[in-house]
């Protein structure tokens, strides 16, 4: 299988605060890979660097086996890699339909756009009902559907999702995960899913990476990660385990980081 996304040794800093340290991961064609970890682990920053809304300063990213050093944000979308950003980020004062149309901005083929919009409406009938409503009036779950639908309009090969479960009730989260599974089955889409909600993410993904403090701590198949005690420790704090400093890979003086971009 071809590697759709290869990220190697990416570093990133906000001013003087380094938030990513030599992060590497990869995703093969049709694979669902999840990156889990607590808030402030650097997951969001990582996706924003891949999608190039943050500059790539150190490291290497290949998409569909092509180097991306020289590409702009639009270039990455054209190459088939699209971001569904944290907190939905829909165009709140435009209609649902216009939001979807704009998702296809880089391809500019209205014929295929129409068909894809139909497809989005099939998957999310609720969006079809609200097609002419302003996106800002939608509920959180509906906005998340819209953000995913908008991303589908660029006919991506790789979809990066940043915390799609954020603020959603469990049923809604489960529905979103189900849709992601369908998308992969039908079109061989590669999905990179950044999640705090480890159970939902590992339930869907083939493989996962655990991040904390800007580093990848461990990786493995979803089953392996589910069984790994480190996951629970990283999430709920070392006090779950009375042994002091039980987090391997977290040196005491290493800053764990909050990311301006992860601020709501």
């Amino acid at each position: 299988m071809t590697k759709m996304l290869e990220v190697s040794k990416v570093n990133y800093s906000y001013g003087r605060a380094q938030v990513l340290y030599d992060v590497s991961f990869e995703a093969a064609e049709g694979e669902i890979v999840t990156i889990i970890g607590p808030n402030g682990a650097g997951k969001s920053t990582l996706l924003n660097v891949v999608a190039r809304s943050h500059k790539l300063r150190r490291g290497n990213i290949r998409i569909a086996e092509r180097g991306t050093e020289k590409l702009s944000q639009a270039g990455i979308v054209k190459l088939g890699c699209v971001l569904v950003p944290e907190g939905r980020q829909v165009f709140s004062s435009l209609t649902v339909h216009d939001n979807l149309v704009l998702g296809g901005y880089v391809s500019r083929r209205s014929g295929t756009a129409k068909a894809t919009i139909e497809r989005v409406f099939d998957i999310f009938p609720r969006l079809a009902e609200r097609s002419n409503q302003l996106a800002g009036t939608l509920s959180g779950g509906e906005q998340q559907m819209l953000a995913i639908g908008r991303a589908m309009l660029s006919r991506p090969k790789v979809m990066l999702l940043d915390e799609p479960s954020l603020g959603l009730a469990p049923q809604m989260t489960a529905r979103i995960m189900e849709v992601l599974g369908e998308l992969r089955r039908e079109s061989g889409l590669t999905i990179v899913l950044v999640e705090q909600n480890a159970h939902a993410a590992l339930g869907l993904a083939d493989r996962g990476y655990l991040m904390s403090g800007g580093r990848v701590l461990t990786s493995g198949t979803s089953a392996e990660l589910k069984a790994d005690k480190m996951v629970q420790q990283v999430y709920l704090g070392a006090s779950a385990d009375p042994a002091p400093d039980a987090n391997p890979g977290l040196a005491p003086e290493q800053p764990s980081t909050a990311l301006p971009s992860e601020a709501k």
Binding site: Q89, F91, D98, V101, R108, S154
Partner: peptide
């Protein structure tokens, strides 16, 4: 589409960048 993209930039420039609007 260009006209809508222009409005989109005004509404949310981060998201406009995400969908590939320059």
């Amino acid at each position: 589409l260009t006209g809508k993209a222009l409005s989109a930039c005004a509404v949310n420039s981060y998201a406009a960048g995400v969908v590939g609007i320059n």
